[in-house]
């Protein structure tokens, strides 16, 4: 039996010579949007969040229609229930880590909010950093807090825009492990083959604003991997 879709998106977008025309459905908890720089990955994420308006299209998240240009439906970012973590964390510099995590739970009851904060501080092992401000944290610490901040209001989908590029492999693996434990659907954007290869997920290959292939990561990205191995002079494998 086919799993019901987590996300169903159809997007048409054109700006200053760049054309994005994609249509995809996410059914697994983790998906990787892979492509070279300039392929349109970030634009796809921004349109999903509502920060950028497409020329036409529709986006359905679970049972909720977020966008349908045919009937002029366009929910604002604040009502889409989507978390977004950027390559460089957008933490509020005047707030502590705890206050940053709490930002998206403004309307929650105090007890529930405090419990959620403690849960995330514990999950990402950042309790000792709770009272520090972003400028007092390392890059890896900031990214963990950014992920906790995005997860805090329990989004229905988490978008990760190459958020761990600046981290070493163990730090990256640790955050991904914590994220898997959080059990939220994730769309992970990357242009780094090694990064995408290690994530066991549904892969979407995007190039020049168009989806070229979809499927299992290691199947879809096999040609890119082979090309990279050839460039590195590694022995050929079938």
């Amino acid at each position: 039996m086919t799993e019901s879709p987590i996300l169903d998106a159809r997007i048409n977008y054109r700006r200053s010579g760049f054309r994005l025309q994609v249509e995809f459905t996410l059914r697994s908890q983790w998906a990787v949007l892979f492509g070279p720089s300039g392929a349109g990955k970030t634009t796809v994420l921004r349109i999903l969040t509502g920060l950028t308006q497409p020329d036409s299209g529709s986006i359905q998240l679970g049972n909720h229609q977020l966008l349908d240009t045919n009937c002029s439906l366009d929910l604002p970012p604040s009502r889409r229930g989507i978390g977004f973590v950027l390559q460089q964390s957008a933490l509020f510099p005047h707030l502590t880590a705890r206050e940053n995590i709490a930002f998206g739970m403004h309307s929650w009851m105090r007890v529930a909010r405090e419990a959620r904060i403690e849960e995330l501080l514990c999950l990402f092992e950042i309790a000792s950093l709770a009272e520090r401000k972003p400028q007092q944290l390392s890059g890896g610490e900031r990214q963990r807090i950014a992920v906790a901040q995005a997860l805090a209001p329990r989004p229905k989908l988490l978008l990760l825009d190459e958020p761990f590029n600046a981290l070493d492999a163990p730090s990256r693996a640790a955050i991904i492990e914590k994220l898997r434990a959080a059990a939220v659907p994730v769309l992970y954007v990357s242009h780094d083959l090694a990064d995408a290869w290690q994530i066991n997920a549904h892969a979407i290959l995007i190039e020049s604003g168009t989806i070229r292939a979809e499927g299992e990561t290691r199947t879809i990205l096999a040609p890119q991997r082979q090309q990279l191995l050839t460039q590195l002079g590694a022995p050929q494998h079938s």
């Binding site: 969040t49 920060l51 604002p76 970012p77 604040s78 009502r79 889409r80 989507i82 978390g83 977004f84 950027l86 460089q88 957008a90 509020f92 930002f103 998206g104 403004h106 309307s107 901040q149 995005a150 209001p153």
Partner: peptide, 17 residues
């Protein structure tokens, strides 16, 4: 940085907030 304003919007903040 516009990213901070966008992040606040994504986290459900109203214009006033």
């Amino acid at each position: 940085d516009i990213a901070l304003v966008e992040q606040a919007r994504l986290l459900g903040a109203s214009r006033w907030r």
